[in-house]
Design a binder for these strands. Structure first.
Length: 210
DNA sequence: CAAGAGATCATCT
DNA sequence: GATGATCTCTTGA
């Protein structure tokens, strides 16, 4: 058994949290089942001035979650069909969060296959909407704490070291509306990992070749 | 394998 | 009334 990451971990600079989440284990408890995966891709949404962040539009019903304490889950519905999972960062009233974009399946793989309606291991959790489906994550988890002993969704405090040379950066995916913020290198992923999300070669050519 | 279209609905204007 | 921190499906090489 490992401890959960606590509030102190999340109440720090968003970019740092996003980087350090790589290699950590995301754990979902449903009934007595455990479903888990290693985080391999994240994005930082760093504050109200970040035009890619929902919070740049101010506090609304949806974004109110981002203004809460670090260590709280921010889950929202996108494109009418999929959920995205974020962990709120920094202190209360400063809206920022890390989007968890992909994990590598570890435990509960059969359950993931059922939720995702596919047998293809490499298509279970390699994208923000896919991993939410695979781990049974929806808006009922929005605003809940990741840091309590009875949390049904949390991140293990294992000392997993991802060597610096294995951590790659790029601009964030799907935020072309964000003006000067669309190209900021705030996406982090583990080099050569099979479970990093698939992106368009045309839109993101710099991610190919190496 | 790669590219493009369409799905689909809560949220905000 | 428009849009989106996405995904799946279809088509074509």
């Amino acid at each position: 058994m490992y401890n959960r990451l606590n509030k102190d971990f999340f109440q720090r600079k968003t970019e740092q949290v996003a980087k350090e989440l790589l290699g950590k284990i995301l754990v979902r408890k449903i009934d007595n089942e455990i479903i888990s995966g290693m985080i391999v891709e994240t994005e930082a949404y760093v504050g109200p001035h970040d035009l890619a962040s929902h919070a740049s539009k101010g506090k609304t019903n949806r974004t109110a979650t981002m203004f809460l304490d670090g260590g709280i889950w921010y889950v929202y519905l996108i494109y009418g069909s999929y959920h995205c999972l974020n962990i709120v960062t920094e202190e209360k009233d400063y809206p920022a969060a890390v989007l968890i974009r992909a994990v590598e399946p570890l435990e509960g793989i059969e359950e993931m296959k059922k939720f995702r309606k596919t047998e293809n291991l490499s298509n279970l959790t390699n994208g923000p909407g896919k991993l939410c489906q695979a781990l049974g994550i929806d808006k009922s988890l929005n605003c809940t704490l990741a840091t309590e002993n009875n949390s049904k969704l949390y991140i293990e405090n294992r000392k997993i070291i991802v060597p610096a040379r294995e951590i790659k950066k790029s601009k964030r995916i799907g935020v072309d509306y964000a003006g000067i913020w669309k190209d900021k290198p705030l996406r982090f992923y583990i080099k050569n990992n099979t479970y990093v999300s698939k992106v368009s070669k045309k839109l993101y050519p710099f991610l190919f070749g190496n």
